[in-house]
Simulated assay, not measured.
Amino acid sequence: MTQKYRSRARNLLHLGSTQANENFNQMVSSKAPKARHYGGSSSLMNRVSATVLQKNEGHSYLAKDLESIPDPIKLQNFNDFVTFDLETTGFGYCDITQIAASVGSSKYQSYVYPRCQISVEATKVTGMSHSIATNKLYLHGKEVQGKCIRTALLDFIDFLKEKDQPILVGHNIASFDVPILSRLLKEFGLHREFVRIVPAYIDTLKVARKVFSKEEVNGCYKQCNLVEVYLNIKYDAHVAVEDVNSLQQLFTVKLKDKCTDEDVYSITCKSCKESYTDVIKNKIVSKVICEKLSKDGIALQHLQLANRRDPNGLRVILREHGVPFKKCEDLARKIQEE
């Protein structure tokens, strides 16, 4: 039987293992034993959440979580602007097929073996296809060598470690690339290290909408159109390495000088926003203020921690992050009442 697989050993090398899933199941069962009926109690979600934290952060997750409160993010704190792009298997819950990044003459590019089928639509857009049977990856029908997702992420982190106070720069990354990247980093227990190295990003789509009028770009803010209009360059869009190279030129020539602190977002912005869901729903605080705090990586738990340490310190933190005085007082009072 083994002879059948020996000839395919190289192709099977990056298919991964179920060991991580089995380990996670054991961790869940240690906190919610099957012999006890936690399914009907309100504690089950907390037990599963604690397991996820232990899986992602290790046994010290309780000490690590919220150990410090982020300072306001300032553009002047960053030196290397790393243009960055992902190509994926599709939309929604998808896997990465390409990672590319560029800063100056330094480049990073990896093809990635996905763990799910590449959609027909994604293949049409990116030219990437994948044979699950042979674990071979193709670009426009030509085989390319890839890496497993974890290896590609580790290599990307190593690339970023060499940079001087880096910040990610990408087009439409706030709603697409960053959430996907963050989810996969968390899955492989790499998110905390990544955020320590690269705490923030700039979405050039948002900057372009601020800088360029609709008339100038014919109502189209797609990266390929902006590059053609302002740089007179046509390129192979949706090939990650081509995207980052062209975006680097566009950003350097047309957008970098127009960026301000308002264009810089924490990598954790999306998860911070989610932490405010209930307080927004219950009209304890406005969505605008929550977005302002989330932009700097301030989650509701950070505010609660600050209040436990020093109620007056909570007000100072809110004012540091641009919350108007009256709103600051109202929010502080409501958090203290919770």
Rank of each mutant, 00 (worst) to 15 (best):
E262I: 03
S213A: 06
I267C: 02
V288C: 04
C220E: 11
Y265C: 10
F251N: 04
N245C: 06
E216P: 03
N218I: 00
A237G: 00
T204Q: 11
I280F: 01
N245H: 12
V264E: 02
N225V: 13
Y235W: 02
D236I: 09
D263L: 02
Q248N: 14
C220K: 14
Y201E: 04
T268G: 03
L250F: 07
K287M: 11
Y230Q: 05
L247R: 03
R209C: 02
V211E: 11
V285K: 08
K206F: 06
F251K: 10
K258N: 08
K270F: 07
V264I: 14
N225D: 05
I202G: 06
V244P: 10
A237K: 13
N245Q: 15
T252M: 08
A240K: 09
G219N: 09
N232G: 06
E274C: 06
S266P: 07
V241R: 13
V244S: 04
Y265D: 06
L226K: 10
L205A: 01
K281R: 15
T204K: 04
V288K: 14
C272P: 00
I202P: 09
K287H: 10
V241W: 12
K254S: 05
T268Y: 02
S266N: 11
D263A: 05
S271N: 11
L231P: 00
V211F: 01
V244G: 01
V217T: 12
S213Q: 14
Y276H: 04
V241C: 10
E228Y: 05
A237W: 11
S266I: 01
N225M: 05
I233D: 09
V288I: 13
S213V: 00
K273I: 12
L205Q: 05
C224I: 13
K234V: 09
C269R: 15
V253N: 09
T268L: 15
Y201W: 05
R209P: 06
C259A: 08
E216W: 01
Q249K: 15
E262D: 13
E242I: 05
Q223E: 11
K206Q: 15
K222R: 15
D236G: 00
T204M: 06
Y235S: 08
D257F: 03
N218A: 09
E228T: 04
T260S: 15
D236H: 11
D257V: 00
Q223Y: 00
D203H: 01
Q249I: 05
Q223R: 13
D257G: 11
D278I: 13
S213D: 09
S286C: 07
S246V: 02
V253C: 04
S246H: 14
V279D: 02
E274L: 13
L247Y: 04
A200D: 09
L226C: 03
K214M: 08
V239H: 14
C224L: 04
Y221V: 06
R209I: 03
E215W: 02
I284F: 08
D263I: 04
L205G: 01
C272N: 03
G219R: 12
K222F: 02
F251E: 10
H238I: 03
Y230W: 09
C220G: 01
K254E: 08
K258H: 07
D263M: 08
S246T: 13
L205E: 04
K281E: 12
V279G: 00
T260M: 09
V217D: 08
R209T: 00
H238Y: 02
Y201L: 01
